[in-house]
Design a protein around this nucleic acid. Structure first.
Lengths: 138, 138
DNA sequence: ATTTTATGTAACTTATGATGTTTCTTAAGG
DNA sequence: CCTTAAGAAACATCATAAGTTACATAAAAT
C-alpha cells in the first residue's frame, strides 16, 4: 500500500520556509522535495485554505508562512491534509446481521480508535518550532 | 488507499469455524465473505503456516481450527497476515543530510511507534473467545 | 502593452498492494 | 476413475497518492 508522505513533506517545507524568511516558488520546493511543482501546489493549497501559508503570483511570488511556527502543530497540518483514516486496517461490512462480524469489528475499531486518539493528542502537543531546533523524542 | 480487511475477515472466519465444529471449505467461506475461494485460500494459508488452522484436501475436507480460540489473540492473527506498517502515513527519505527532514521524521515516527506499540499491546490482550461471546469495548 | 514569472486547475498517467479471477495441479475419499 | 477439495501460478481490477501535461490567470518587470 503506498504511504501518504504529505505530512512529512509539508512539515519539511514549512520549517524551511521559516528559515528562509522569503517567498519560495513551487519550482524551488519541487526541487527540494524531488517532485514537481504541480504536486507542491496541490498539497500546499490545502495548507493555504487553512491559513498556514500564503501564495503570491507573479514576479517575486511564491509561498510564505502565514503563521509563526510556534502557532502550528503537527495536528494542524495532519488535519489540513487528510480526512481519511490513519490506519491501513479496514473493517468489513459484509453482513450487517452477523453478531460475530459485529464483535470482530468492534474489537478492532475499539483499539484503533484508542490509538488514533493517542496519535492526534501527541501531534497536537508538537509545535513546528520544535522541529526547527532539533527534535528530541519523548 | 485501499484498506486491508484481512484481519477483520479472518477473525470472522475463525470464530465461525469454532462455532461450526466441522471442516468448512474455501468455497463456503468465500460465500460467507462475499469473495472467492482463491482469496480465502491465499489468506487462510498464512494462518495455516502459523499453526492456527489446518487444511484437509478431498472429500469432507476443508478448514478447521488447529488451536482453541482462547489460545489465539488478535495480535497473533495480525502478525500472521502482515509485516507491513499499520499506518497510512509514510516518511520521506529524500535528503539524508537535511537536519530538518530528520527532525520531522523523528517527530512523526516517535508518535507512530508509540501508537503502534499500543495497538499491538491491545491486540495481544484480546483472545478470540471474547469475540465469540459478544465483545464489549473497554 | 508585452513579456516573464508565478500560482491555479483540470485531465490524464503511473505506481503500489490488496483483492478478484482463471486455470491447472495435487491429494484424498468414494 | 470420478468427485471434491486445497495449492498455486498468472493475470486483471480497484483505489489512491503521486507524477505529468497543458493551459488559464494574475502580477511584476521591461
Amino acid at each position: 500500500m503506498r504511504k501518504d508522505s504529505r505530512l512529512s513533506r509539508m512539515l519539511h517545507v514549512l520549517v524551511h520556509l521559516h528559515q528562509l524568511q522569503q517567498a519560495v516558488t513551487s519550482d524551488q520546493l519541487a526541487l527540494m522535495l524531488h517532485t514537481n511543482p504541480v504536486v507542491v501546489r496541490r498539497t500546499m493549497s490545502l495548507l493555504r485554505e487553512q491559513g498556514y501559508v500564503s501564495a503570491v503570483k507573479g514576479h517575486g511570488g511564491g509561498w510564505t508562512l502565514a503563521k509563526p511556527l510556534h502557532e502550528i502543530t503537527l495536528l494542524d497540518i495532519h488535519r489540513s491534509l487528510s480526512e481519511s483514516s490513519l490506519f491501513t486496517i479496514g473493517l468489513t461490512d459484509e453482513h450487517n446481521n452477523c453478531p460475530i462480524e459485529k464483535a470482530v469489528n468492534l474489537a478492532i475499531d475499539d483499539v484503533l480508535q484508542e490509538a488514533e486518539a493517542l496519535v492526534l493528542q501527541r501531534f497536537g502537543e508538537v509545535t513546528l518550532d520544535k522541529l526547527a531546533t532539533g527534535y528530541t523524542p519523548r
